[in-house]
């Protein structure tokens, strides 16, 4: 994988929030990972784990306090010049969890989808803009007649399509999708996932997919990173992670995943994780590549055990 083109490089990222007064909260600590062109990397963790903060830091919605984020080799966090900023806003788009609150409810769908085009003058004339909007609507399976409607006139699944159309019309290279299907009904989820996959095939898009449910991301991810309390504890190719989970938190998450099968659920054993299983007082942990492409956050003693488990 080393010779694949890296589209995003996150190096020792830290995001700290001011909580008023002198109180601070470090939501993301020393996080490093790369995203390769054309792949889907999923970031999985529970609420408060910092997964959304990382996604928002990449599109510059959250300020970073330490570390670097590179987009196609160029630094995009902190102070950057106007040109780079423009490049980021145009080429990195976000799809949000709640399609209702991410659309301007007083604007027509036509405007919602065109907003980015207006901001960057990405159209030759009015005719060209209209053509682009019609194409974007058609691409996500909506109709021409939907243009003049308002977001509240759509169902959740349709609104999420508008959210996707609005991102896709910018012809981005990289998309941060923050729980894009969590708010949708089961029968609609598959439609939206298929749509995202289709765009990836056709346009070579790269995704960072943020989610809390491992079983849902298995189907769409090339690699998965598991995050706990601001630290990535394990990262591997999808099937490797499911077949050889090492970190106790990953194992606990996997044990909790609801499976649509009464037999399996009946025999389910929940594995709890509270962090007390680690002794990091002397032997400090690090994020180590234990087998090619499989990273785990562990200290020397734990690494030895993991190697034993893997039979290496």
């Amino acid at each position: 994988m080393e010779n694949r083109e890296k589209i995003i490089e996150v190096k020792n990222l830290e995001v700290t929030f001011q909580l008023g007064g002198k109180k601070t909260l470090t939501a993301v600590k020393n996080v490093s990972f790369d995203i390769y062109k054309g792949e889907t990397l999923s970031l999985v963790g529970e609420s408060g784990s910092g997964k959304t903060t990382i996604g928002r830091a990449i599109i510059r919605l959250n300020e970073t306090t330490d570390g670097e984020i590179l987009f196609k080799g160029k630094k995009i966090n902190g102070k950057i010049d106007k040109e780079t900023k423009k490049d980021v806003v145009r080429n990195i788009q976000m799809i949000f969890q709640d399609p209702a609150s991410s659309l301007n409810e007083r604007a027509t769908i036509d405007y919602c989808i065109s907003e980015g085009l207006y901001n960057f003058h990405l159209y030759e004339d009015e005719e060209d803009r209209e053509r682009k909007v019609s194409q974007a609507l058609a691409d996500v399976g909506l109709l021409e007649e939907h243009k003049s409607r308002y977001p509240h006139e759509f169902s959740g699944g349709q609104r999420q399509r508008v959210g996707i159309a609005r991102a896709m019309i910018m012809e981005p290279q990289f998309i941060v999708a923050d729980e894009p299907i969590s708010a949708l009904d089961v029968s609609i989820r598959a439609q939206v996932l298929n749509l995202m996959k289709k765009f990836q095939r056709e346009r070579g898009l790269t995704y960072l997919f943020i989610a809390h449910d491992l079983s849902v991301v298995r189907h769409i991810s090339d690699r998965i990173a598991v995050i706990h309390k601001g630290t990535i504890v394990e990262m591997a190719e999808t099937e490797e992670l499911f077949n050889n989970p090492l970190h106790p938190y990953t194992i606990s998450l996997l044990s909790a995943v609801p499976m649509p099968d009464p037999e399996i659920e009946k025999n389910k054993v929940l594995i709890k994780y509270d962090g007390s299983e680690h002794d990091y007082s002397v032997d400090k942990p690090d994020f180590v590549e234990i087998t090619p492409g499989h990273f785990v956050h562990a200290n020397q003693k734990e690494l030895e055990e993991y190697r034993k488990q893997l039979g290496i």
Binding site: F242, N243, P245, D261, I264, K268, V269, I271
Partner: peptide
């Protein structure tokens, strides 16, 4: 779906 025999229990 997992080599561990379903349930993702991992153990």
């Amino acid at each position: 779906s997992t080599s561990k025999g379903g349930g993702y229990s991992g153990k």
